[in-house]
C-alpha cells in the first residue's frame, strides 16, 4: 500500500477537518459529533483504505492533543472510513440523498464496533451525551449492552447521515482541477 503524495496531503487535511468539525459541533452545542466529515470525504475521493486510515489517525492525533480517550475509539473511526469507502465504490455517494442514506448505514457497523469498547472498557459510559440516553434505557429495564447500543445507535444514525451529507456537498463542490487526480471519485460522479 502506498498512497500518492496528494492523497496523503488530503488525508492530513481531512484529519484537521474532522477535529475542527468536532470542535464546532461542540461550541454550537449540537447533539452531534460531526468528527468524521473529513474521513467520509476521503472515503469518497480516495477509497476505503484511505478513508479508514484517516479515521484511525484522527483519533490518534486527537488523543495526542486533546483527549487520550479518543484513541480508544480509533477502531470505530477506522470502520467509518472503510464502510463509507465501500459504499462509495458501490456508487452510493452519487446524490445527496444516497449520501445521507449511506451515512445512516455507516452508523450501524460503527456502533457495533463502538459498543464493546464502551461496555467492556468504559463500563458502559463515555462521560458524554449518550450516557443520559443509556441511563434512561437502563432505568426502564433494558440490559447494559442494549442500553448502550440503542442510545449510541440513535445518535450515530443522525450524526453520520448529517456528516455524510456535508462530506458529499463538499466533494461535489470541489473544483475539477483538485478532484481530477483522485480517480476513485469517478465512482461518485453522476
Amino acid at each position: 500500500m502506498k498512497f500518492d503524495t496528494r492523497t496523503l496531503i488530503l488525508m492530513a487535511a481531512a484529519v484537521v477537518i474532522n477535529i475542527i468539525g468536532g470542535q464546532i459541533a461542540h461550541f454550537l452545542k449540537l447533539p452531534l459529533y460531526l468528527d468524521s466529515i473529513g474521513t467520509i470525504l476521503v472515503a469518497i475521493l480516495a477509497g476505503p483504505l484511505a478513508g479508514g486510515i484517516t479515521g484511525l489517525v484522527t483519533n490518534l492525533v486527537w488523543g495526542l492533543i486533546l483527549n487520550p480517550v479518543a484513541a480508544a475509539f480509533a477502531p470505530v473511526a477506522l470502520v467509518i472510513g472503510v464502510v463509507a469507502g465501500l459504499l462509495a465504490r458501490a456508487g452510493w455517494f452519487r446524490t445527496w440523498w444516497q449520501a445521507t442514506i449511506s451515512g445512516a448505514i455507516v452508523a450501524v457497523p460503527s456502533t457495533i464496533v463502538a459498543v464493546p469498547i464502551i461496555v467492556y472498557m468504559f463500563g458502559g459510559v463515555t462521560g458524554g451525551g449518550p450516557d443520559f440516553a443509556a441511563a434512561y434505557l437502563l432505568a426502564v429495564g433494558q440490559s447494559l449492552v442494549q442500553s448502550v447500543a440503542f442510545s449510541n445507535l440513535g445518535i450515530n444514525i443522525a450524526d453520520k447521515a448529517v456528516t455524510a451529507l456535508i462530506a458529499w456537498i463538499v466533494a461535489s463542490r470541489l473544483p475539477l482541477r483538485l478532484t481530477s487526480n483522485f480517480g476513485f471519485f469517478e465512482h461518485s460522479r453522476v
Partner: peptide, 9 residues
C-alpha cells in the same frame, strides 16, 4: 518547475 505533468494532468 517540473511539477507537471502529474497524474491525469
Amino acid at each position: 518547475a517540473g511539477l507537471l505533468p502529474d497524474g491525469v494532468l
